[in-house]
Design a protein around this nucleic acid. Structure first.
Lengths: 225, 225
DNA sequence: TACGCAATGTGATACATATCACAAAATAAT
DNA sequence: ATTATTTTGTGATATGTATCACATTGCGTA
């Protein structure tokens, strides 16, 4: 059975809590897709009744601001996407786009709801996830708006290193223009600050490859604004 | 029975969905308090295992940013507070403070979890609430960081008028300094922009009382940055 | 290999707004 | 009532960064 969700169970605590019955239901009712970097997963303004499980890969959540497209969050697998849409207006209020190759499963909302109803542990996991996200968004709000560009850039680099790639060396999955939309600045400033950090020996840039040399200083910059 | 949660049921869809059994359990296991303007409901950094139900009144959610205290959100009753804490680390990651007189109920997390487990409709309501919050935070993120001060001020005024007080005339429940922390600007800029809006006939200021005279213009300012 | 388009580096200028510095007014305390 | 303390109004200056302009490099494609 190729599409057996049991094979997925090890990758996420949440899924591993599902009852056999629910796992079977899930296996029978989902569509799995392989996506390439740049492919759209969710498109703002379109209709949807699917919950999407990001099985592998990295994605950006972004939406139209008054002037620019704003990236509000980077998400890496495993993670559920699109819950606010499916539990809300059914019109996607934001876009999600793969920034690396990715595998996603489309699960019908009805099925997902049934599974929620029948798996308390799973429901609690999902709620906890929401809670974590809310806290994160609060912190992000306080940080982004108060810090100067260098601080926000430092933040973003640390997040990539610690949270997304879990390595001091990684390949920036965003163009500088995209990076600017994540950090709330201009493309040019991203370029400048990146050069500065390199010149100061805090990071080493090699094309799109970034190595973090001095995490302490980066943390300091992040904290001081 | 003074503390009967049934009396509360009409005020919130969520509560009205609870089973009789759960309502009894809730009635027997909660502490109700009357608070005055300025009283702390949740304090960042302290330990807590209570979910808090804001029964009446208006509160601000705020936390320490790198430089200032940042208000991330205004919340009016009826609403649950502190879920991210109780479902997470048990240490409050943000503060909540009453900005008007308020009534709150402290519900033990265990009791709340039991009620969640036993009331699917209620659980779904809570999840939907989380979804709404997430969308709101995304939008806020895109707006706050891209708009100029006038735009954010217009936003905030419209939110007070439409969402919080549901009236064109209201008394600002925040000092200008607090308002600045909500809108991500300086106390002086709040003063200046408020005067501008008044001079331009968009709003009428009378001490702490604000009347919105020209909502269309305000909306325009909000959209144009 | 050569071409064209997209992504990046970097200076000069413009501008929104934070900050500083007080004055005035309003609130609270004695 | 009088003083003290907090809140608000408003000008002048400083500053971080967006914007514009163009050079340069990298990259996919014919």
């Amino acid at each position: 059975m190729e599409n057996d969700c049991r094979n997925c169970a090890f990758k996420t605590k949440a899924t591993s809590m599902l009852s056999d019955c629910s796992l079977d239901q899930l296996s029978a009712n989902h569509l799995e897709l392989r996506l390439k970097k740049g492919d759209s997963i969710i498109k703002q303004g379109t209709y949807s009744t699917n919950v999407i499980f990001l099985r592998t890969g990295l994605a950006k959540i972004h939406l139209a601001g008054p002037y620019n497209e704003q990236i509000v969050k980077m998400v890496n697998a495993p993670s559920y996407l699109g819950l606010p849409t499916t539990f809300g207006s059914k019109i996607n209020q934001y876009s999600v786009t793969a920034v690396s190759d990715a595998e996603v499963c489309y699960i019908d909302l009805k099925v997902f709801e049934t599974i929620l109803d029948e798996n308390k542990e799973f429901t609690r996991e999902i709620i906890q996830e929401f809670c974590k996200n809310e806290l994160e968004s609060f912190r992000r709000c306080a940080n982004r708006t108060q810090k100067l560009i260098r601080g926000n850039m430092a933040d973003a680099l640390l997040e990539f290193s610690d949270k997304i790639f879990k390595s001091n060396t990684f390949i920036l999955p965003l163009s500088q223009a995209e990076f600017a939309n994540l950090v709330d600045t201009s493309r040019e400033s991203v370029s400048r600050v990146l050069s500065e950090f390199d010149k100061d020996g805090i990071i080493k840039i090699n094309g799109k490859k970034i190595e973090i040399l001095n995490k302490e200083t980066l943390l300091l910059i992040s904290q001081k604004g």
